[in-house]
Amino acid sequence: MSVSSESVLILSPSDYWALAVNLNVKTPKEAASYGAALFDLGKEYRYEAQKVGENSYILIAYSPDELAQRFNLLPHLSVIKKMTFAQWVFAEEPRPIYLPNGKYLTTLEGIIVEIDPLYIDTKPSVTLDEVLSHPRPFLKTIPIEGLSTAELTPKTLTITLVILGILLANLVAETFLSYQNSEHLSQEMQSVLELSKLPETSIERDAILANLKVKEAKQLHFRQLCKAISDLPIEGKSLVNPKVPNISAAVNATPEGIVLIPGSKPGEPNRLLIEHTASAANINVHGEGIETFNYDGNAVNLIIETHDSASNESLKREISKHFNHAQINDHDTQLEVRLK
């Protein structure tokens, strides 16, 4: 018989294992999942199932590696894409089927087996060609390409080289297209620069603008801090000691010890006494409020004089109310504050 890509390869009973079982499942796929436990052949085997009755199935176990090795020895069958099992093809044939090797295919307890003619009645037999001459409306098959090949065949090598060639061509094409796209983008960028008349140092300009924006943000933050500080209930006061000593008069003053202030005239009271005299009273001046204000670029540092330890707590509450991250150190009548 001629062989073509539409042909289906039928595996003889010696190429697989078969087992009739009763399983409480609904589909052949569910039944095939029990194959590994029922056959106990090895991890390399695959399993198929055929439903023959209510909860009755014929399980088939086959080794893809063994079949692939056998197919490699038959290069004239390399065009065939599908295979099936003798169990699926001849199970419904009631007569023994005569094979070219002199043996017969027959059904024993629902399973197709290859047997010597000494053990069966061969009178109502039929030849293999006669059975295959009748077309079947439906025949379950398995793709041969799904088998794992243990050896590198010329066909596999050719397909591998073709795939590698396609991948290499795609890589070269993508590289070339990427190069073209980069060149096109570079030309478009140059055209935009020429149309907008931007200098070549636009990157440096952007860096300067970014730096100015950072400085502007810091200045705005500093102004906001100053505004918030001005809203604090801090009153500045100057306390002057009212007890001012009298200016002592000149003792043993001589005309030589009198110096006129520039612009004054003799006899006026605005004379400056220089020897054994005092020109002003010793006045002790004390203040309340912000004594030190310092900004280091990130935070404002304040030293606040209160001269009243009781008012420190009230002022600290106000500062904490206006500034969430204020750092306050209390030194009796002095507050050291850091604001961010």
Rank of each mutant, 00 (worst) to 15 (best):
K243I: 10
N246D: 10
S202K: 00
K243R: 05
L239T: 11
E194R: 06
A228P: 02
Q190R: 08
K218Q: 15
S182Q: 13
F222E: 15
A207K: 14
L209T: 11
P233D: 03
D231T: 04
E204C: 07
L239C: 04
L198D: 01
Q190F: 01
L232M: 04
L195S: 10
K243Y: 01
P199S: 11
C226M: 11
A228M: 07
Q224G: 04
K218A: 14
A210M: 05
A228I: 03
K197I: 01
A250M: 08
V214I: 14
V192C: 03
I234T: 04
A207M: 13
A250K: 15
I203H: 07
L260N: 10
L209Q: 09
V251L: 09
Y179M: 07
I261T: 11
P245D: 06
G257Y: 08
K213F: 05
L198A: 07
K197T: 01
D206P: 01
N252G: 11
V240S: 02
R223W: 04
V192F: 08
P199L: 04
Q180N: 09
I234G: 03
M189H: 12
A249L: 07
S186R: 14
K218G: 06
A249E: 15
E200Q: 07
Q190D: 14
M189N: 14
A253D: 00
L185I: 11
S191C: 00
M189C: 03
T254W: 01
I247A: 05
Q224E: 15
D206G: 05
P233W: 03
A207V: 12
K227E: 15
L209A: 12
N211D: 14
K215E: 03
L177D: 11
L232W: 00
